[in-house]
């Protein structure tokens, strides 16, 4: 029996979000829905990264007054994933903005949001 920790729950949430996000991106036809699925996927990646940096019984990686350096270095959670995730959140917002802008442009031209109509391959 595996002991349930908050890290394991983080991995489970990440796996669920990744599966739901990928499935939504692949199987849903509406472009806006696909974009929402992408935000879910990006959330899943974020939580996976943070869960990797988690340390059981650790502390928040902020050096509080009265905490010795040794105690901090042995107990603090990893900081590097937090940096990555912060960047990923920002990149996710900009990607979403670009995707929505392109969806608006294509809607004006084609009058529909169905990916199977708008993004069909063309014979050249």
């Amino acid at each position: 029996m595996i002991e349930v920790t908050i890290q394991l729950l983080g991995f489970i949430a990440a796996a669920l979000l990744l599966i739901i996000g990928i499935a939504g991106m692949v199987f849903l036809d509406n472009i806006i829905k696909k974009i929402i699925a992408f935000t879910l996927l990006s959330d899943g990646v974020n939580i996976l990264l943070v869960a990797i940096g988690y340390i059981e019984g650790g502390v928040v990686p902020i050096l509080l007054p009265g905490m010795s350096t040794v105690e901090f270095t042995t107990h603090a959670a990893l900081v590097f994933p937090v940096g990555i995730v912060l960047t990923n959140i920002v990149i996710g917002v900009s990607t979403t903005a670009i995707l929505v802008a392109l969806a608006i442009m294509l809607y004006r031209r084609y009058g529909t949001l169905k990916a199977s109509v708008v993004l069909k391959g063309e014979r050249r």
Partner: peptide, 18 residues
């Protein structure tokens, strides 16, 4: 969940952005 995973700053960012 970010709060529980010892990343409170990310929790704040995610709350605003998300």
């Amino acid at each position: 969940f970010f709060q529980a995973l010892l990343a409170p700053d990310l929790g704040l960012t995610q709350a605003i952005v998300g």
